[in-house]
Lab assay of single mutants.
Amino acid sequence: MFKRLMMVALLVIAPLSAATAADQTNPYKLMDEAAQKTFDRLKNEQPQIRANPDYLRTIVDQELLPYVQVKYAGALVLGQYYKSATPAQREAYFAAFREYLKQAYGQALAMYHGQTYQIAPEQPLGDKTIVPIRVTIIDPNGRPPVRLDFQWRKNSQTGNWQAYDMIAEGVSMITTKQNEWGTLLRTKGIDGLTAQLKSISQQKITLEEKK
């Protein structure tokens, strides 16, 4: 169930391209415009997507990853294993993690069937560096609404905000991946996880038929 919630949630996290980005210092504006741009692209490019579902990787690479804190999220997933990894191991892992996100997020976007969304009203940021933004996803086919909290983090150097995690039903996506990959990290280390991520990233994206 959580895996499905995570995939549905990713439908609204794909941010804007650099040329049309919203105010990078306001995570609420980023979330709002990102959702609108993403849904528009999914709707307008269905012919290309249906002809070649792996085209979704391109959308992810162009529109999402430049505005997601990939390395920060990847380091959180590694936890204690990050500090013990060599620079070469980290570089290989982050490259594999990025390719994994292209496949995983692309597969999530393949679930698009006309969903709509509501974003919580903007709250004062103050001096906060981590801000959760509640998004409610509404399914046109009558499924119950899904309420999610996207975690946005302020870059201490640039002042810009980027998304790095999502919490559904009190469970963090980062925590879920830590639990899912924990045994592999304990037995085969970061190299074993890197190899698995490379394998997963090679899987073809498949479209979910409308139910």
Score class of each variant (00 low, 15 high):
Asp23Ser: 13
Gln203Ala: 05
Phe39Lys: 02
Met31Arg: 01
Met7Thr: 04
Lys43Val: 05
Met111Phe: 08
Met6Leu: 08
Ser84Ala: 13
Lys177Ala: 01
Pro144Arg: 07
Arg50Ile: 09
Pro66Ser: 09
Ala96Phe: 06
Ser172Asp: 03
Pro53Arg: 10
Ala120Cys: 06
Val70Met: 08
Leu125Ala: 00
Asn179Trp: 06
Pro15Ala: 05
Lys102Met: 14
Pro145Cys: 04
Phe97Cys: 06
Tyr82His: 05
Gln48Tyr: 08
Tyr72Pro: 01
Gln151Val: 00
Gly79Arg: 02
Gln103Ile: 15
Thr25Cys: 09
Gly182Pro: 15
Glu63His: 04
Gln80Thr: 14
Ser172Arg: 12
Asn44Ser: 13
Gln196Val: 07
Gln118Glu: 13
Val135Met: 06
Met111Arg: 04
Ala22Arg: 07
Gln89Ala: 13
Phe94Ile: 10
Phe97His: 14
Glu180Thr: 03
Asn160Ser: 10
Ser156Gly: 03
Asn179His: 04
Asn160Gln: 14
Thr58Phe: 09
Pro124Trp: 13
Glu63Arg: 04
Met1Ala: 00
Asn141Tyr: 08
Met111Trp: 05
Gln123Phe: 08
Asp149Met: 04
Asp54Tyr: 10
Ala85His: 06
Ala110Phe: 05
Gly106Ala: 15
Pro27Ser: 06
Gln62Ala: 12
Gln157Ser: 10
Ile59Met: 05
Tyr82Glu: 01
Val77Phe: 05
Gly79Asp: 02
Leu64Glu: 01
Ile190Gln: 05
Gln203Gly: 14
Gln203Asn: 10
Leu65Glu: 10
Trp161Val: 11
Ala75Phe: 00
Ala34Asp: 04
Asn44His: 15
Asn155Ile: 03
Ala73Met: 06
Ile59Lys: 02
Tyr72Gly: 00
Leu207Ser: 15
Thr129His: 10
Ala75Leu: 01
Ala95Lys: 13
Asn26Gln: 10
Thr194Leu: 07
Lys29Arg: 10
Lys154Trp: 05
Thr206Glu: 10
Lys102Ala: 14
Glu180Asn: 02
Glu63Ile: 02
Trp152Asn: 08
Phe150Ala: 00
Ala21Ile: 05
Leu148Ile: 00
Leu11Ile: 07
Gly126Ala: 00
Thr116Glu: 14
Arg147Lys: 02
Asp165Gly: 00
Tyr93Phe: 07
Pro140Cys: 15
Glu209Thr: 13
Glu99Lys: 06
Gln178Gly: 06
Lys154Met: 05
Asn26Ala: 05
Leu56Arg: 05
Thr25Trp: 10
Thr183Ala: 00
Leu65Ser: 06
Ala19Glu: 03
Leu207Met: 14
Trp152Ser: 02
Ile133His: 11
Ile138Met: 15
Thr116His: 15
Asn52Tyr: 09
Glu99Thr: 13
Lys198Ala: 02
Trp152Tyr: 04
Glu99Val: 15
Gln123Val: 12
Val131Thr: 08
Phe94Ala: 05
Tyr81Glu: 05
Glu91Thr: 10
Asp40His: 09
Thr86Gly: 09
Phe39Asn: 01
Gly170Arg: 01
Gly74Val: 01
Ala96Ser: 12
Ser17Pro: 09
Arg143Ala: 00
Lys128Gly: 14
Ser17Gln: 15
Ala110Ile: 12
Ile200Val: 02
Tyr67Val: 07
Tyr112Cys: 02
Asp191Ser: 05
Ala110Arg: 11
Ala108Asp: 01
Ala51His: 10
Ile59Trp: 01
Leu64Pro: 01
Glu122His: 09
Glu45Ala: 12
Ala19Thr: 08
Gln202Phe: 15
Asn44Arg: 14
Phe2Pro: 01
Gln69Glu: 01
Glu33Asp: 08
Gln89Asp: 15
Asp23Pro: 11
Gln80Ile: 11
Ala95Trp: 07
Leu42His: 05
Tyr81Cys: 04
Tyr72Asn: 05
Lys188Pro: 10
Asp54Pro: 08
Pro27Phe: 03
Tyr105Leu: 02
Leu148Thr: 03
Pro53Ser: 14
Ala51Thr: 14
Pro121Ala: 00
Thr158Met: 15
Ile59Asn: 06
Gln36Lys: 09
Ser84Arg: 10
Ala19Met: 03
Gln118His: 14
Lys71Thr: 08
Lys29Glu: 15
Thr206Gln: 15
Asp165Pro: 00
Asn141Phe: 08
Gln118Cys: 10
Thr187Arg: 07
Thr58Lys: 10
Met6Ile: 10
Asp165Ala: 00
Ile133Met: 03
Asp54Ala: 14
Glu99Arg: 06
Ile190Trp: 09
Leu78Asn: 04
Thr175Pro: 05
Gln89His: 10
Val68Lys: 13
His113Met: 07
Pro15Asn: 15
Leu5Gly: 01
Pro145Leu: 05
Gln202Arg: 10
Lys204Ala: 04
Gln196Trp: 07
Leu184Gly: 05
Leu207Val: 13
Asn141Gln: 08
Ala35Gly: 10
Thr86Gln: 11
Thr86Met: 11
Glu209Phe: 09
Pro47Tyr: 09
Thr86Cys: 09
Met173Phe: 00
Arg147Asp: 00
Asn52Gln: 12
Met173Ala: 00
Leu125Val: 14
Thr136Leu: 15
Thr158Ile: 09
Tyr93Ala: 03
Tyr93Gly: 02
Arg153Asn: 02
Pro145Ile: 05
Lys71Phe: 03
Tyr28Asn: 12
Tyr164Ile: 02
Ile133Pro: 04
Glu99Pro: 14
Thr176Val: 02
Phe94Trp: 11
Thr25Ile: 09
Asp61Pro: 01
Lys3Glu: 08
Gln89Glu: 12
Glu91Lys: 08
Glu180Asp: 04
Thr38Arg: 00
Val60Ile: 15
Thr175Arg: 06
Tyr117Cys: 03
Glu209Gly: 12
Gln24Val: 08
Lys29Asp: 15
Ser172Leu: 00
Lys37Ser: 06
Ile59Tyr: 06
Leu16Cys: 11
Leu207His: 15
Glu45Gln: 09
Thr176Ile: 00
Glu99Ile: 10
Val135Gly: 02
Thr38Gly: 03
Pro140Ile: 14
Leu185Glu: 05
Asn141Thr: 09
Tyr117Ser: 15
Lys128Tyr: 07
Glu122Thr: 11
Val131Gln: 03
Lys128Cys: 08
Asn141Trp: 08
Gln36Asn: 14
Pro121Tyr: 09
Trp181Lys: 15
Tyr72Gln: 00
Leu197Met: 08
Val135Leu: 02
Leu76Ala: 01
Ala120Trp: 15
Val68Trp: 01
Ser199Thr: 11
Arg134Pro: 02
Tyr28Thr: 10
Pro87Met: 08
Gln62Trp: 05
Gln69Pro: 04
Lys43Tyr: 08
Met111His: 12
Arg4Trp: 10
Asp149Arg: 04
Arg134Gly: 04
Ser156Pro: 04
Val135Phe: 00
Lys177Gln: 13
Leu185Phe: 08
Phe39Gln: 01
Ala163Asp: 08
Gly114Ile: 07
Lys83Asp: 02
Val77Met: 12
Ala75Lys: 00
Trp161Leu: 03
Pro27Cys: 15
Ser201Lys: 14
Thr38Asp: 03
Ala110Trp: 13
Gln80Val: 14
Lys211Ile: 11
Gln62Lys: 11
Val171Ser: 00
Lys83Phe: 02
Lys29Trp: 12
Ser201Tyr: 15
Asp139Arg: 14
Lys37Leu: 11
Glu208Ser: 07
Gln157Asn: 05
